[in-house]
Nucleic acid binder design. Structure first.
Lengths: 226, 226
DNA sequence: AATAAAAATGACTGACGGGTCATTTTATGC
DNA sequence: GCATAAAATGACCCGTCAGTCATTTTTATT
């Protein structure tokens, strides 16, 4: 799969070939992401992935050693091109409540049409059967996010922030529940993800949208957050 | 499966036979619950269930028409013998915050060694493949719990209770996340379910264990309440 | 005991799908 | 163009497992 500098009677890989292989690899990953998102890991058939990628089934195995490796490739491909979670561009907000809220809402917003929603659901719902997927996802996504939340929550003495520092999962919980709900409960109205996250931010931190105007450091007493 | 009053040359089912069949049915359900809990729906093999129940595979089909029906039977059997969620025995607490907290903590406590944890996880993680399971579970468990939360949260004017009324899922979220985390993250320390629920109750309602003494009716307004 | 209905059995079937590999197609170097 | 290596193909293999059914065992009745 990888060319080594060899003088033996091998052959040189041309630029054109390299690009073609790269394109094929990309096409496979794209098709796989779609299928995994649509059907989950177990139910996805490699024949379908191959067909969708315009490739024969055997070709998949020239690029990925197994179905699990293919999924790992999808995770890495889908997750890597984004900036690390640890950094924020805007340092406009200084209260940890605002920074936490901004961080979470940014992440939720970026979920919408990235492939990350599908990946997250697959890991959540089938991870116990495929521990390797959990490892990859944990390292690439979960740990950075939780670390970031803990760091932001560490700044203060507030008992609420202390609680979040102790259970950073509580700020992710609404997202997970929303994703699961929307996947499973097809017969009832879907949960509005940003809305439920804002609701949790209000409960947990007393945070509201309007907060960005008023430099009031305390929790607003009466938020009509309809 | 069901005997009709017939005069034709049928045979009468003796009490002994009836009990034997009942026992067999129970044994099958017990084995099925264990296997579904352990392996999930898709991965559970009916041959194993049969063996565990001390029965031949074909016998399963005398009692349940399919794997899905068997699961439905398990859900009904596991869920039905408990009291409805809508009622509480202790009306000692009058503040809705206390009643909500009591309600949630009671439910979490009762989760520990009932089969309900396993069922919940199966529905959560495989429900999208088996909508019927979701329907059964929604009707038997989810809707009653959410309704109860909404009812309890409706009593007051507090903006926090309003938020909970709007997103009752927020109070269940920590439980779901805890269950999923503990199933998936086998290499990191498990989440203490009662602890994370209490943490959420504190964030959402300002509720603490000690609160049962202090009759403070309002939500602690100040995050710096250390 | 004889008989027949009901219950139980487990070998078998058929669909499914991940993974393989002998063969074919395509690209490279001379 | 020719020779050869790399890449691609897809028919095939093989294990799995829900569900079936001809046969055997148990039970009720006379």
């Amino acid at each position: 799969m990888i060319e080594l500098g060899k003088s033996a009677p091998g052959r040189m890989e041309t630029e054109r070939t390299r690009l073609k292989k790269q394109a094929k690899r990309t096409a496979i990953l794209k098709a796989a992401l779609e299928e995994f998102t649509e059907n989950g890991f177990a139910k996805t058939r490699l024949a379908t992935v191959a067909q969708k990628a315009g490739v024969a089934k055997g070709t998949l195995y020239l690029y990925f050693a197994s179905k699990e490796e293919l999924f790992a490739g999808v995770v890495e491909e889908t997750l890597s091109p984004q900036e690390p979670y640890g950094e924020e561009t805007s340092e406009d907000f200084h209260r940890p409540e605002d920074r936490l809220s901004r961080f979470l809402l940014d992440n939720v917003a970026s979920l919408r049409d990235s492939g990350r929603t599908g990946i997250a659901l697959v890991v959540l719902t089938e991870g116990h059967l495929f521990p390797r997927l959990v490892d990859i996802y944990t390292q690439a996504v979960l740990t950075p996010i939780l670390d970031r939340i803990m760091t932001l929550a560490q700044t203060e003495e507030s008992p609420r922030l202390k609680t979040i520092h102790r259970f950073p999962q509580l700020l992710m919980a609404p997202v997970l529940v929303g994703l699961l709900w929307n996947r499973i409960m097809t017969s009832s109205p879907p949960i509005d993800l940003p809305a439920i996250v804002k609701a949790q931010l209000f409960l947990a931190l007393g945070w509201t949208d309007e907060n960005e105007n008023g430099p009031d450091t305390t929790v607003p007493a009466e938020p009509h957050l309809q």
